[in-house]
Nucleic acid binder design. Structure first.
Lengths: 147, 147
DNA sequence: CTTCAATTGTTGAATATTCAATATTTTCAA
DNA sequence: TTGAAAATATTGAATATTCAACAATTGAAG
C-alpha cells in the first residue's frame, strides 16, 4: 500500500533553496563587478537608495537595503569615514537620524550604477528578455504575497 | 535632447535586488519554522543532502548547501558534537572526508522536512500553484544559464 | 502635566564568517 | 621513481554580524 505522506522532495525542488541558489549566484557576479571599485553590494544599495537626494532614517534605510539595524549602523560608520554619506539629526523627531549622500558618494554611485547595469544587460543577453521580465514579475508578486 | 544613457533604474527593479529580497523573506519564514527544532536553515540543508544515506565529501557538500569550506567545517564540527552526522575518511582518496548522517540525524531530518513542506504548502496557498511552479522553472533556468 | 510605554538608534559582548596559511594526499610530468 | 603542482580539508587570526542591553526622545493615557 502507498504511503499517505508526500514523497520526499529533493532539496533542489524547494523554492527556498532555489531562491538561495539563484541569489547566491547573481550576487556573486554583482560582487565581482563592484569589486573593481572596492565596494560591497550593500554599499551600492545604500548609495542607490540615498541618491534620490532625500534624507532617509536608519530604520527606513535598513529595511530598504535588507540589513538589520546594528549591521547598518556599522556600515554607515565606515561610509561616513569615507565621506560617502553623512548623518543629520532629524529636526522633527530627534530620535531619528537622517542619512544623506555626499557629492563624493554621488560620483561613486554613478560608477557603481553602470557596473550594475552592465550586469543586468549581461543577464538579459544570456537569459533572455522575456524570461527576465517574467522572473522579475513573479518575484515582485511573491514578495507582495508574503506581507 | 534626450540623454543617450539609460534612465536610472530604481533599485527595486534590479534582478539582483529582487532575488535578495525574495530570498530574505522566504528564508526568514523557513528559519522561523525550523526554530521550533532549534536548527538553522543550513543544518536542514546538510541533513537533507546527507539523508540519501551516501557519503558526501566536504567539497561536494559545501557546494550543495551553499556554504564555503571553512564555514561548513565549523558547522559540521557542531553537528558531530550533536551526533547528527559523522566523518569517515574516504578509503579511495585519503584527502577526502566523507560525511554521513546518523540515526539521530535521520530522525531530526524527518521532523525538519515536515516543517519545510509545511512552508511550501503555505506558499502554494497564498501565492498559487501556477505562479510557484513557473517561478521555480524560471529560477532553475536562471541558475543553469549562469554556469 | 506627569508618567509610562513605544520608537529609534547605537554600543559592546558573543557568535559566526571569511581569508590566508597550513597539512596531507594525490596526480602527473619528467 | 621522484618531485612539483593540484586537490582537499582544517586551522587561527582578522572581520563581520547578531543579540541583548542601553540611552534618548516621543507619544499617549490618566
Amino acid at each position: 500500500m502507498a504511503k499517505p505522506t508526500k514523497a520526499n522532495i529533493p532539496i533542489t525542488e524547494h523554492l527556498a533553496y532555489l531562491l538561495a541558489q539563484a541569489n547566491r549566484e547573481i550576487n556573486r557576479q554583482l560582487e565581482l563587478r563592484l569589486s573593481k571599485e572596492g565596494v560591497p553590494v550593500e554599499q551600492w544599495r545604500i548609495l542607490k537608495v540615498l541618491s534620490d537626494g532625500n534624507g532617509h532614517s536608519m530604520g527606513e534605510l535598513a529595511e530598504a537595503v535588507l540589513l538589520n539595524h546594528p549591521t547598518l549602523t556599522k556600515m554607515i560608520d565606515r561610509m561616513v569615514s569615507d565621506t560617502l554619506v553623512y548623518r543629520v539629526q532629524d529636526p522633527n523627531d530627534r530620535r531619528k537620524v537622517l542619512m544623506f549622500i555626499s557629492d563624493r558618494g554621488k560620483v561613486l554611485s554613478k560608477r557603481l550604477n553602470s557596473l550594475a547595469v552592465d550586469q543586468e544587460e549581461h543577464i538579459l543577453e544570456s537569459y533572455g528578455d522575456k524570461s527576465t521580465s517574467e522572473l522579475k514579475r513573479l518575484l515582485e508578486s511573491l514578495i507582495d504575497s508574503s506581507n
